[in-house]
Design a protein around this nucleic acid. Structure first.
Lengths: 339, 339
DNA sequence: CTGAAAGCGCTAACAG
DNA sequence: CTGTTAGCGCTTTCAG
């Protein structure tokens, strides 16, 4: 069942040079857009290129120029397993879309946790000009060390600020959460609870900070906190604990929609109404928000934009252009019927 | 804000040869696992490689061997826009996972519909050893022509069987649908309606065929058909039309979960119950199935497996090994409370 | 502004 | 089994 592949020798730079009646060096200059070539000659060469349907050979080009024109997108295997996470998928999409407009090619590599050296070697083996590292919401900068020998841009801020040297772009979790909470306040709520995620994840920490900032700015109580693990079940349990405290609660900010989903159940089973008794805001704007009853007010993150920005920052770094070490993208509050 | 990158000349094959006291050719042989090298020499060389932390340069290797060790994953831009589609995301995941175990590297390219030639040129420019083409459930084989000069494997069967030469792997829609319908029959249903998708999409056609096969095998009526466009709204409308026919209906097979969702509404609004009056089965096993009331019985597709298989088939083709031109993956019926 | 010459790092016959 | 010898196709000084 194997098929033949006509190995019709692709035209080389040399062939173009011959047809155009110039030297290979000149063709190379034209191909690379060198400014010092007569318009006339440039035209002749371009015509020859078109006629021959010439496409430069990347390998040869890289070898000679010592540049690969490739950037890697590193995805830890654990993240890949949950690849269907729309947030992550959108990041990849953004990266790919931005890169499509550049000279760079996207190399997706799944780094196995079992054999992280394989990836390290690949990255350091001169196979790529730079790398993008995304790790499922978690800010894992374990590749940060490579940052000193290869331009790397991370998706998500590092957990510790000690990483005072890695470049990253992240969603502005603090401001997004502050906005969500302020929305609750604007709706007249005064006893606003928080169900947040693990404090060993940047998203968990930052979203708590935003909530607290908003509350403090209005002189409101910040003691209504419970922790979950971003799963629906944990959200339900956290909400129950909150309700059991027996203190008044008229607003809830759950730091992701999944936990908000769980909280919905707990609120409803306690006989309370949404948003009548308790107004709730989520975070992530995933599918749950739309299908929930009532539809959930939530914080939308610019996931595609995150990917695009990462790619953009990396390309600039590779080009040696100055770029901010940290880029924070704004979120958008999507107001629906739960508030 | 730019940072320095120590351009510590990566060790070359030559350096390894020197350290090991052999020729470059021998080192090359060891690196490429040639069988004709003394165990002793192999060891010495490997030690030198380890000591120097040598990593072969891909560009040089490709240039000399005329192989790129790269396979492209082509994603039409329209598909990329809906990248968050979990089915598609899983395919990418599968591809990446399988490739991670091979010598191949994954190049993701988004092909713009506006400029399809850019992609064609890239593929034909000797930049990749093979390509994987996925187009959102649609069986678009517009790159089929390239198949004669580059190994290509498609995800999803082509719409027309005229494409009697392209290699593809697909989910076995016919058998999946037949199974879904037989399940309804086994549950004692005899008046089984169908809401299917556009007949210009392989999935739309094949799922109808499976339903019909099951019904005919049991001598049941196959006239209860209505068409939708895979959207929830179209499913709702189709169901209403079905109900308006005024004939008995005790089972429904909707060819995707989204349309099943719409059908749910129509059934419920008509005062009927699920599965009491009408048992329903969907297809896709997307998130709707789980959150629906009652949870939806549906057909699960091996999306990750699809990606893995595509990669596997492509790698074999590149290696010149014989492979089936078409590979159909089995589906699995997930039985929940709607039947 | 353009050509000539010298490799980039590695593989691949071909000898030995 | 191992070394020698040529390049793979392109970029890049360095002259002219």
């Amino acid at each position: 069942m194997t098929s033949e592949h006509t190995d019709a020798h692709a035209p080389t730079l040399e062939a173009v040079a011959a047809l155009a009646g110039v030297s290979r060096a000149t063709v190379s200059r034209v191909v690379n857009g060198s400014p010092k070539v007569t318009a006339e000659v440039t035209e002749t060469v371009n015509k020859a290129i078109a006629d021959l349907n010439y496409v430069p050979n990347r390998a040869a080009r890289s070898l000679a120029s010592r540049k690969t024109q490739v950037v890697a997108l590193v995805v830890p295997e654990s993240t890949a397993k949950v690849f269907a996470d729309p947030f992550f998928a959108s990041i990849v999409q953004g990266v790919a879309l931005h890169l499509a407009d550049t000279e760079y090619t996207l190399n997706m590599v799944i780094s196995s946790e079992l054999n992280p050296d394989k990836t390290r070697r690949y990255l350091m083996g001169g196979n790529v000009d730079g790398a993008l590292v995304v790790s499922h919401h978690s800010g894992d900068h374990s590749y940060a060390q490579l940052g000193s020998s290869l331009p790397i841009v991370f998706g998500g801020r590092p957990l510790s600020d000690a990483e005072h040297n890695s470049f990253f772009v992240d969603v502005d979790n603090v401001s997004g959460s502050r906005g969500a909470t302020e929305h609750l306040i604007a709706r007249g709520r005064r006893n606003i609870a928080l169900i947040t995620g693990p404090q060993d994840m940047p998203a968990g920490v930052d979203r708590l900070v935003g909530w607290r900032q908003a509350l403090e700015a209005h002189g409101l109580d910040t003691s209504l906190i419970e922790y979950g693990d971003f799963s629906p079940l944990s959200g339900m349990k956290a909400m129950r604990r909150l309700l059991e405290r027996g203190v008044p609660i008229d607003g809830l900010f759950a730091t992701n929609d999944q936990m908000a989903a769980g909280a919905y159940s707990a609120i409803l089973e306690s006989g309370r109404s949404i948003p009548g008794d308790i107004a709730v805001v989520g975070y992530d704007d995933d599918y749950f928000g739309l299908t929930a009853t009532p539809p959930l007010t939530t914080v939308h993150q610019p996931s595609v934009g995150l990917g695009e920005t990462m790619a953009q920052v990396l390309v600039k770094r590779i080009a040696g252009e100055p770029v901010e070490r940290v880029t924070l993208l704004p979120t958008e509050l999507v107001v629906r019927q739960s508030t």
